[in-house]
Simulated scan of single mutants.
Amino acid sequence: MNKKILTQAHKLFTDDGIHDTFLDDVKIYTTSKYDPLSPFIYDVCLILVLQGKKIGHLGDNKLIYDSKNYLVVPTTLPLECETYASKEEPFIGLIISIDKKVMYEIIDNISKKEFIDSKKNSLGVFSDNVNNKIEELTFNLLEILQSKEESTILGTSILKELFYRVAVGNNSKFLYKMFLNNNKEAKIARALKIIHTECESNLNIATLARQEDMSVASFHTHFKQITSHTPLQYIKKIRLTKGKDLIAKQHYQVIDAAYEMGYDSASQFSRDFKNYFGYPPKEVKPTI
């Protein structure tokens, strides 16, 4: 991203953290220190990095998103992310929620693309190159975010064009698949939403598959292609990540977080937690 963009961005924050803007769907995230590999849950969003770099891991897959590459997460997914930043060059990124209705409209009206089924396009997240159009729209977005009036009047049209540019990007084939209701990818996306909403429940994989008119075998195959995990591995990962948030952000006791996330035993929760994060839940540091 160019210097004009960074100049506009610096007007929107004064310190590290996640900052709201005049548009509900747009937030700016900044940090001036390196963050080691940590789990995050992304929910249908576009991430534009203005400065610095993140490396996201989904299973054995690695995605780099920086000032030259944006990240698109077309379904709810957990990523393990590493953030590269320093006081001299802080990480600055825009997190933009993708309006599903707007994206459906764009994909419905856009000239049809050929969908090529390959391993390259099966993962439920992708990065793409920042081109001149994306840079121009990023600058325009940051400029209107300085004003509530301009954000209210112009924000929707700028975001719609931004989503369009993403939809015609070089790596956007998977985005199309996610938004075509009868595709296997779209079916898995709906199942993922249920898992994230009801992860503490006793979810039944056969029931999830049946709800999308899929066989259990097909559900397992496509689920792993998109998330890099089996359904049961994925559910455990989401429970542990949300359990960690309960302890850190809402100051839950370990036993309460375990039961809240559907565990019958706090000791089992602690074992799974340590296996996943590398340290026991009692060592989680609360955040204010």
Rank of each mutant, 00 (worst) to 15 (best):
Q146L: 09
G155L: 11
L145V: 09
K112L: 03
N121A: 07
E143L: 08
V168L: 05
F139E: 15
A167H: 12
K133G: 03
I153P: 03
K113T: 11
N171H: 10
F163D: 00
T152M: 11
T156N: 11
K112R: 15
Q146V: 06
N109G: 11
M178V: 13
E136S: 06
K173A: 04
I116R: 12
L175P: 01
L142F: 04
S172R: 05
E114M: 12
R165Q: 15
V166C: 05
S122Y: 13
N132V: 03
E150S: 13
D117R: 07
E136T: 13
N109C: 07
S127L: 07
F115G: 04
D117Q: 12
R165E: 15
S157A: 10
V168G: 05
L142Y: 02
L154E: 05
I116F: 04
F126Y: 11
L145G: 01
I110N: 08
V168C: 08
S151V: 04
G124H: 01
G155M: 10
F179P: 00
K133P: 00
I110P: 01
I144H: 00
L159C: 04
S122F: 11
K177Q: 12
S118H: 07
L154G: 02
D128E: 14
V125P: 01
K113N: 11
F126L: 06
A167W: 04
K112M: 09
L162E: 01
E136G: 04
T152Y: 15
Y176Q: 08
V166N: 01
I144P: 00
S172L: 03
N181R: 12
G169S: 13
M178R: 02
N182A: 12
T156I: 11
V168A: 04
K120T: 07
L123W: 01
E149M: 08
L145K: 02
G169W: 02
K119N: 09
D108Q: 12
S172A: 14
L137P: 00
E161F: 04
K120A: 06
A167F: 12
K148T: 08
F179D: 00
I134V: 05
E150V: 07
K148Q: 12
V166W: 01
L180S: 14
D108M: 08
K148L: 12
T156P: 03
N171Q: 13
S151M: 07
F126H: 02
F115Q: 06
K133C: 05
I153N: 09
T152N: 05
K173I: 15
G155C: 11
L162K: 01
V168I: 08
M178I: 15
E161P: 01
N140M: 10
V168E: 07
N121Y: 05
L141H: 03
E114R: 12
S172K: 05
V125D: 01
L141S: 03
Q146A: 10
K177N: 07
F126N: 00
N170A: 04
L145A: 07
I134H: 02
L180Y: 11
D117K: 14
E161N: 12
S122E: 08
R165K: 10
V166Q: 02
K119M: 07
K113S: 10
S127F: 15
N131E: 10
K177W: 02
N181V: 06
G155D: 03
S122Q: 06
N171Y: 14
N170Q: 15
D108E: 06
F179R: 00
K148E: 09
